[in-house]
């Protein structure tokens, strides 16, 4: 079953980049499958910072390649908060 974080991250990506919800699954690559570019990923990080109040430079050090990577890093951040 999908966690609340996963649902919300999916919603943000769908809203921000006009994607179909069924296309935004945890295994999807941001660059190859969702066809986001570096600037899009900047936008996404800003939106996530606003949503969860984290600071990406501290909390998102490792590379994010898939939707699942984002969810994992946010869940780790929320669990440590």
């Amino acid at each position: 079953m999908q966690s609340d974080t996963a649902k919300r991250v999916q919603e943000i990506i769908v809203e921000q980049f006009e994607k179909k919800p069924e296309d935004v699954t945890v295994d999807k690559s941001l660059l190859d499958d969702l066809e986001l570019d570096s600037l899009d990923i900047f936008d996404l990080i800003c939106a996530l910072e606003d949503e969860y109040g984290f600071h990406f430079e501290r909390e998102m050090e490792s590379s994010i390649n898939t939707v699942g990577d984002i969810i994992t890093q946010i869940e780790v951040y929320l669990s440590q908060k």
Partner: peptide
């Protein structure tokens, strides 16, 4: 670099006094 890694590098470069070009 791409994605969040590129964002790290650009921030680093700016703090190091370099310029950045972006076509928004």
């Amino acid at each position: 670099g791409i994605g969040n890694q590129a964002l790290y590098i650009l921030l680093q470069k700016l703090r190091n006094g370099s310029n950045v070009l972006i076509f928004p």
